[in-house]
């Protein structure tokens, strides 16, 4: 197994009587890590505790192999963070702001300026970089936040809800950029979101946090394999007859509002579905294995977590 980039042991953070993080223990290898949880679950607190923006009360944590409590400044040289909320410096131009952030991370001025322009190109900010950051649209602000987070070439970057407030095209672009960070450039990405489809698309590991507790940490592949036996079949016509065929074979099915036929085949792979289609000489436009698997895993984990905490 790869050396974990994040390692926590019994990390607990309280705000008064409320536990924002409750005994979180996890070892996370490098990759694209999706941090999922409902609003107020403790995702942002977890990130802030790892970056020492907020000290945790008990437990131990290491980031990139260094003790978070003692080596915060050294760690942050190698870590990037794009917070959820706007946090720019009023009056600064986009390029000045990113250059300044690079200098704060220890880059010499000329390197910082060059990197700032490269990263602004990378995130797709053109001539807008010469405008004051406070005049940016939401999409531009998300881009400049991403640029400042990666300008010093960190080994790991924490992105807190980076697609919030973006239109579909902007969201698509940001997701593609974030995906490329791990897949093409080897930068570990911790992607915090409550949008499951975003996480499903770009992450290969999932952490689910609810009520301050870590409920699930596994690879997306493993999580999806837990929910095998469901598929959606897309056909042009004859959805109802297909449903009846599946039902007759003992596979409960239903026609969804989008016209897809959802079938619970119960197998480890799609062989039962493909066999039935072949037998009746039916042609499917598409077969989606384990659709919404992440959503189901998420809901199940959160429900079980809530029940557990209520019971305890």
């Amino acid at each position: 197994m790869l050396q974990p980039v994040i390692h926590t042991q019994g990390v607990t953070k309280r705000y008064g009587t409320q536990r924002a993080l409750d005994n979180v223990s996890v070892q996370v290898p490098p990759g694209a890590i999706g941090l999922l949880g409902p609003n107020g679950a403790g995702k942002t607190t977890f990130i802030k505790c790892l970056l020492q923006l907020q000290p945790f009360d008990t437990g131990q944590a290491t980031l990139l192999g260094r003790d978070v409590a003692r080596e915060g400044r050294e760690i942050r040289k190698r870590v990037g963070y794009a917070p959820e909320q706007d946090c720019h410096i009023p009056g600064m131009l986009g390029c000045e702001y990113v250059t300044y952030c690079a200098q704060l991370s220890g880059l010499p001025f000329y390197d910082a300026r060059q990197r700032a322009h490269e990263m602004l190109d990378f995130v797709g900010l053109g001539q807008e970089r010469y405008r004051a950051v406070d005049t940016y649209s939401t999409g531009m602000k998300q881009r400049v936040k991403l640029a400042q987070a990666i300008v010093h070439d960190p080994e790991i970057v924490f992105l807190d809800e980076p697609t919030n407030g973006l239109d579909p095209a902007g969201r698509e672009q940001i997701l593609e950029l974030v995906q490329s960070l791990w897949q093409r450039h080897g930068m570990t990405v911790v992607f915090s979101s409550h949008l499951l489809q975003d996480v499903d698309r770009i992450c290969d590991q999932i952490m689910i946090i609810a009520r301050g507790r870590l409920l699930v940490h596994d690879t997306l592949k493993n999580l999806k394999s837990r929910r095998v036996g469901v598929a959606e079949v897309v056909v042009l016509t004859g959805q109802e007859s297909l449903r009846q065929l599946f039902a007759a074979r003992g596979m409960p099915a239903e026609v969804l509002s989008n016209g897809h036929v959802r079938v619970e085949h119960g197998g480890a792979d799609l062989t039962p579905v493909l066999g039935l289609l072949h037998e009746h000489n039916l042609r499917a436009l598409e077969i989606i294995p384990s659709p919404n698997a992440l959503e189901e895993v998420f809901l199940k984990a959160v429900t079980e977590g809530s029940a557990g905490s209520t019971g305890s």
Binding site: L53, K77, V79, L104
Partner: peptide, 13 residues
């Protein structure tokens, strides 16, 4: 403006 978060997230205490 919460710019303080940016300072705290960089390599400065």
């Amino acid at each position: 403006t919460r710019a303080i978060v940016i300072y705290q997230a960089k390599a400065v205490s």
